[in-house]
């Protein structure tokens, strides 16, 4: 594996049992992701985007084939080690934010750090840095119910980024946002991708997200039909 290669997927198959038969959600997937990618799994509903994101995120295991994330074979990981991988190295952003409603913005962002037993002073610095990245240092005491949708998603981004994970997985992160907020969030993620070299992998069929991607992996019926690097004007 190359030194900056974070994820390697070979001949990955994922089947789900249906009655006496099975449904193949992913069929013969081969992929690699390197440090600092800003990639998206795109395709219609049922194409296998979220299933692939689940496997990369160690939330599910392959039925066949091989998926290696940060040097760990996902198929061989037990529940405990899968949780450790997520806790230390992966960040998650959801469509519906999923902030903890009774906690403040600061506490929501702090929560992943409590799980890795970071000291209080380090936690405080990390949380303030993360809120600074997303421009919410003035809202640290607010509760999620007091924030707009865009602000909630920015808190979710801060929560995903606060432990400086190697990989951030985002499932339809702009689906609940209007156009202006979607662009703001995506620009902010791009900035973090460039500054912190965090790899972002999206599962989306939203054109607003797709236009920001540097790599577009198109899935159809569980297969990759196109894997395209999008070059910026500068690169061209």
């Amino acid at each position: 594996m190359e030194q900056n290669q974070l994820i390697t997927i070979n001949n990955l198959v994922k089947n789900f049992p249906i009655g006496k038969g099975k449904f193949t959600a992913l069929n013969g997937i081969n992929l690699t992701f390197k440090t600092g990618e800003f990639a998206g799994l795109v395709g219609p509903s049922g194409s296998g985007k979220t299933t692939l994101l689940n496997i990369i995120g160690s939330l599910d295991i392959p039925s066949e084939g091989y998926a290696n994330v940060l040097g760990m074979n996902i198929g061989k990981l037990n529940i405990k080690n899968a949780a450790i991988l997520r806790r230390l190295h992966l960040g998650f952003i959801f469509q519906t934010y999923n902030l903890l409603p009774v906690y403040s913005v600061y506490e929501n962002v702090e929560f992943p750090l409590l799980l890795i037993n970071m000291s209080a002073s380090q936690r405080k610095k990390a949380v303030m840095d993360a809120l600074d990245w997303v421009g919410l240092t003035d809202k640290i005491k607010s509760r999620p119910a007091q924030l707009s949708g865009g602000e909630c998603q920015r808190v979710a981004v801060a929560r995903a980024m606060v432990k400086k994970p190697k990989i951030v997985l985002a499932d339809e992160p702009t689906a609940n946002l209007d156009a202006a907020n979607s662009h703001n969030i995506l620009k902010m993620m791009m900035k973090l991708n460039e500054e912190l070299k965090t790899t972002f992998i999206f599962a989306t069929h939203d054109e607003k997200v797709i236009q920001y991607l540097k790599r577009k992996i198109k899935l159809e019926d569980g297969k990759i039909v196109k894997d395209e690097i999008i070059k910026t004007n500068k690169e061209l």
């Binding site: 995120g57 939330l59 529940i79 405990k80 949780a83 450790i84 991988l85 997520r86 806790r87 230390l88 992966l90 998650f92 959801f94 999923n98 903890l100 929560f111 992943p112 799980l115 929560r159």
Partner: peptide, 16 residues
């Protein structure tokens, strides 16, 4: 339900 789901996704173990 949502809170537990997020905590599991973030990497908190079920036992924890």
């Amino acid at each position: 339900y949502g809170e537990v789901g997020v905590r599991l996704a973030i990497g908190e173990e079920k036992g924890h």
